[in-house]
Design a protein around this nucleic acid. Structure first.
Length: 831
RNA sequence: GCGAGAGUGGCGGAAUUGGUAGACGCGCUGGACUUAGGAUCCAGUUCCAUCCGGAGUGGGGGUUCGAGUCCCCCCUUUCGCACCA
């Protein structure tokens, strides 16, 4: 055990791994410079981890992909920042702690230790000097500082309203943490609760969050699309209807003001506060009350899943300002409280939902849009709404107007009359950030009867999370019962006051962690501005796509806010984002403890060595695709590493070649020349592969090269060692331990990662001859080998030399010949 | 339903801007060396075929001298959003 057998020599991977992992640390190979040159820096980031268990295959894959890039960037001479840390606050850690009946602090500390040890075994080039932990006071002191900056700018505020409540976790959740109406963490159906909560005003940044996506060519299109849809911007108009009895204005949002004359009823959401002010007649009041009760009992999923829309008439009417028409006011739970104004103008003829509702309750349907000027619609024959744009009819002075023009003209009219205005609406809601849980960053606000909400003064930060024993969730913050914590004096007036009992959503902690890495030990500020100027933006951020509409929006929001208050100097936190694929089991199923199909990276590393575990992960699938992991993933790359790469040591001749030089053709034998060309082609290919993070083809290319290279046939010692050392350099970021050992065996005293990444010799990426495909009518009939710069005449001469081509042209007319230099000759013939 | 990807041998997957489809690896077949082989090495491996050739990148059509690659329609599949007025 502990070493791998090869043809003649063993690879003692355990010793080699330990040796280099230690030396990288003592020699500070991965330590980031304090102040990099902004033109020659590389900030490589992988998402930090929840310490809710040990590292699994998904983490392993994430970090080795980043590691390969980071190590190559180091060899390209960049100042490298490649840090790591722990997203240690929050539900995942707290839930795990509760299950095991230990205090979250203790459990977190223990797991950080376990996970760190595993990570260090992977040989990933993290700069452990910069390790951060979001649950440490010297970190969350600055999370609180961030909160206060937002508060001071009016971007952190409290409001009462309906929130997502997880009955299992007993806490409020942000919209982004509700998936399919269920709690993202525990899968429990989320219910609505009316509460006062803290929010961050992310909606103030909605436009910039959408628009700046266009400045991010290095982000995957699908991810950007997801963000655009999540923010959900739509353009339309706000139109004020009037409640008949009370005269109260009832504004609604619509994207189709061109259908305004087709309104036959109004609908408001069951949550609407308007209901309190309507003075419903008793016979309606009872039904409305019943309906609201029913609606509140339904979860969002039930509401959405329900096939038939339903609602009740309130007995009240609203007036359409455009034509003075009086329409019924209904309450219906297909109207969402949180979007627009929580009320809609219903146009059954031109909206599918309104159509169904109108049919069900016998409400009139009025056609006001025709597909075009010549086609008319008859509502009695319609079995669904016509929702396309068309030309306006039955709309008075607006008749005949079409599409966008119609929309504009109607809106303009409303504006002139004072009862309408153009309006942009978003699906994005403000970020609910307060949590009624113990294990989180305390909210640094003091509530004073006299002064209201007062931020904790800077010199009193951090507000320490008290180490209480009773931390179990109970529906309100466990901190609320800790008298020593809660009771304070007001920093402003000195009177009696109390702390805010809630803690923050852990996504607040993770919204700025990438900044702390630049300056993790700063006690005066969250980070130094000059360092931020030099290090930012992140050059490559790697993580799963799961955070597309959560963390990856939040951290962009934070970054933009910090730019606005002068702490960072670029508009976006990361110029390039890469989403790697998931790691599945051999059958393509997600690895999970309950299925018992989890393969631990530790097992694989123990049995085969880290380098081979890494190679297998790289080789099995391209980085962005999912990997179906099985033992077969190991076989091929293990043979390659042990039989091709490691034995290169025996072929070394101690020549100490100059790696920066190129060879001239006359210096080399025919075989050497052939190897030299292959080498340079490989350098070119592999350098491109690293840019694309496509390491499966990097390994293929190395396999081809090592097969072609046969040291026994190489005459010149210098050339022999030159080739071997270049192979080692090209492979080093993928299999760092073995390559360091080989590099040392070749007589180097410094790390291979301090050597210079190979450049290809531009005169040697093409050979002297090349194969040309000869086609007849686009079908391949022959391949001929000609000089590299052979012209059409020479190629034709060679092509017609044998009978492979002539047998197809004989007796036929050659219509034309297409020649692409260095590639093909296509001869078009006709009978 | 809407949006974005993906579909290539038995399998994982290659194929800059249209230009020799199947690189590389697994698996499989045959052979060599062996007491042995789950080691190593060599050869073969898209399918069909009477060995001339033919077909072939989910299906159908199109553009082109030439299409995995570009255009149109359809099917399957993965992911995301799902009553957003």
């Amino acid at each position: 055990m502990g070493s791998q057998k090869t043809g003649t020599m063993k690879f003692p991977y355990k010793e080699v791994e330990a040796k280099w992992q230690e030396r990288w640390i003592t020699e500070g190979v991965h330590e980031a410079p304090e102040l990099p040159n902004p033109d020659r820096k590389w900030y490589q980031l992988e998402m930090f981890a929840y310490p809710s268990g040990d590292i699994h295959m998904g983490h392993f894959r994430n970090y080795i992909i980043g590691d390969a890039v980071a190590r190559q960037q180091l060899m390209l001479g960049k100042g490298l920042l490649h840090p790591f840390g722990w997203d240690a606050f929050g539900l995942p850690a707290e839930r795990a702690a509760i299950q095991r009946k230990i205090h979250p602090a203790e459990w977190t500390e223990k797991n950080v230790g376990v996970s760190r040890r595993t990570l260090q075994k992977t040989g990933v080039s993290f700069d452990w000097e910069r390790e951060i932990n979001s649950s440490a006071p010297d970190y969350y002191r600055w999370t609180q500082w961030m909160f206060i900056q937002l508060f001071k700018q009016g971007l952190a505020y409290r409001k009462r309203g309906f929130v997502n409540w997880c009955p299992e976790d007993k806490t409020v959740l942000a919209n982004e943490q509700v998936k399919d109406g269920r709690c993202e963490r525990c899968g429990t159906e989320v219910i609505k609760k009316d509460q006062i909560q803290w929010y961050f005003k992310i909606t103030a940044y909605a436009d910039r969050l959408i628009d700046d996506l266009d400045q991010l060519p290095g982000w995957p299109e699908n991810l950007k699309t997801m963000q655009r849809e999540w923010i959900g911007r739509s353009y339309g108009a706000e139109i004020d209807f009037t409640i008949e009895d009370t005269g109260e204005k009832l504004p609604i949002f619509t994207t189709r003001p061109d259908t305004i004359f087709g309104v036959t009823f109004m609908a408001i959401s069951p949550e609407s506060e308007l209901l309190e002010r309507l003075n419903l007649e008793p016979k309606y009041a009872e039904a409305v009350k019943e309906y609201r009760k029913k609606a509140f009992a339904r979860s969002d999923i039930e509401r959405a899943a329900i096939g038939e829309k339903d609602g009740v008439f309130t007995g009240k009417y609203a007036i359409n300002p455009f034509n003075g028409e009086r329409v019924q006011l209904w309450i219906a739970d297909y109207v969402l409280a949180g979007y627009g104004t929580g009320a809609v103008m219903a146009v059954p003829a031109h909206d599918t939902r309104d159509f169904a509702f109108a049919k069900k309750y016998g409400i009139p349907i009025k056609v006001v849009i025709h597909p075009d000027a010549d086609t008319t619609l008859d509502f009695s024959k319609m079995d669904d709404a016509f929702t396309e744009y068309g030309s306006m009819v039955n709309s008075g002075q607006f008749d005949g107007l079409m599409g966008q023009d119609a929309i504009q003209r109607v809106t303009q009219y409303g504006e002139k009359q004072g009862f309408g205005r153009s309006k942009v609406n978003y699906k994005l809601k403000d970020w609910s950030i307060s949590r009624q849980r113990y294990w989180g960053c305390p909210i640094p606000i003091i509530h004073c009867e006299k002064c209201g909400e007062v931020p904790v003064p800077d010199d009193q930060l951090p507000v320490l999370l008290p180490p209480v024993q009773d931390y179990l969730p109970k529906g309100r913050s466990p901190l609320a019962d800790v008298q020593e914590y809660m009771n304070v004096t007001c920093p402003s007036c000195g009177g009696p006051a109390h702390r805010d009992p809630d803690t923050m959503d852990t996504f607040v902690c993770s919204s700025w962690y990438y900044l702390r890495y630049m300056d993790p030990h700063n006690t005066e500020a969250p980070f130094d501005k000059e360092k931020a100027r030099r290090w930012l933006p992140i050059d490559l951020y790697i993580g799963g796509v799961t955070h597309a509409t959560g963390h990856l929006i939040y951290f962009r929001f934070f970054h933009k806010f910090l730019q606005d208050i002068g702490w960072v100097f670029c508009p976006e936190p990361a110029t390039r984002m890469f989403n790697h694929g998931m790691v599945m089991d051999a059958k393509g199923e997600v690895m999970s403890k309950s299925k018992g199909n989890v393969v631990s990276p530790i097992t694989v590393m123990d049995e085969h060595g880290v380098d081979i575990a890494r190679l297998a992960m790289f080789f099995t699938a391209p980085s962005e695709r999912e990997v179906l992991w099985s033992d077969d993933s190991i076989t091929g790359v293990e043979k390659f590493a042990l039989n091709k790469i490691w034995p290169l040591a025996e072929s070394l001749r101690g020549a100490k070649p100059n790696l920066k030089r190129y060879f001239k053709p006359e210096e080399l034998s025919d075989f050497e020349r052939q190897v030299y060309i292959k080498l340079n082609q490989t350098v070119k290919r592999i350098t491109e592969d690293y840019e694309r993070l496509q390491f499966n083809t990097t390994i293929s290319a190395l396999m081809e090269l090592t097969r072609e290279f046969d040291s026994a046939k190489v005459i010149r010692d210098e050339f022999n060692d030159y080739v071997i050392l270049k192979i080692i350099q090209l492979a080093a970021p993928l299999m760092p331990h073995m390559c360091e050992e080989l590099w040392e065996m070749a007589g180097h005293t410094d790390s291979v990662f301090r050597s210079e990444w190979p450049q290809f010799d531009p005169d040697a990426v093409v050979g002297d001859t090349i194969e040309i495909a000869v086609q007849i009518n686009g079908k391949l009939r022959d391949t001929i080998r000609v000089a590299i710069d052979a012209d059409q005449a020479a190629v034709e001469a060679a092509a017609f030399a044998g009978d492979k081509i002539t047998r197809f042209t004989e007796g036929k007319t050659i219509v034309k010949k297409i020649f692409v230099k260095g590639r093909i000759l296509n001869i078009v013939v006709r009978d």
